[in-house]
Amino acid sequence: MNHIGFFIIAASALVSAILVVRSQNLIRAVLWLGVTLLSTAAFYAMLESSFLAGVQVLVYVGGVVTLMIFGVMITRRHEGILVHAENHGSMKGFAVAGSLFAVVAFAIRATDGLDRERPFTPLTTKDLGRELLQTHVLAFEVVSFLLLAAIIGAIVIARKRDPVEKPAALPAPHATPSATKEAHP
């Protein structure tokens, strides 16, 4: 039963990931990416890592996909109707992706994470909280500085291009009694 579920999710993750890179339309590519990320969340749920599954949907599908949609929408385009993704250098991309895969696979093999004999104890949210606030409390604080840096970066991006200059501010309404007497011509 679990295997069937696994293969369905894996298939959806793979197919949608391929569609992300093959899609000619950037918005569709982003939406396919959402499917990939949802499949990943399903994996987490299958591994009884509920919190991670929820976070995956909340931050990645709800947040990052949104961010990418906005990224596409604020991009200056040339002409034409569809947003065409450039497909140059797919060989280079393949090479990069392949080497990344090799590195990750090696890292996984090197750790003892794949020990099938060890009893499986799912990590609850409380465990996660304890780990975060006791063992990794320094990393926890560093994350806040990372987020701070990201906020400041976002503001700098926003100020790069100002919107239309607002017309000169007129005297605040109701503040300047400038009524003028004028006879009917």
């Binding site: 919190f51 709800g62 604020i74 949210t125 909280g129 994350v143 976002a154 503001i155 926003a158």
Partner: peptide
């Protein structure tokens, strides 16, 4: 094309969301 302020909104959302996500286990 839309204005970049939309992008900042989404970026802020992601950042504050990550903040909240760290607060949930806490």
């Amino acid at each position: 094309q839309f204005h970049a302020r939309y992008y900042v909104v989404a970026l802020f959302f992601v950042l504050f969301d990550i903040e909240a996500v760290f607060l949930f286990p806490w």
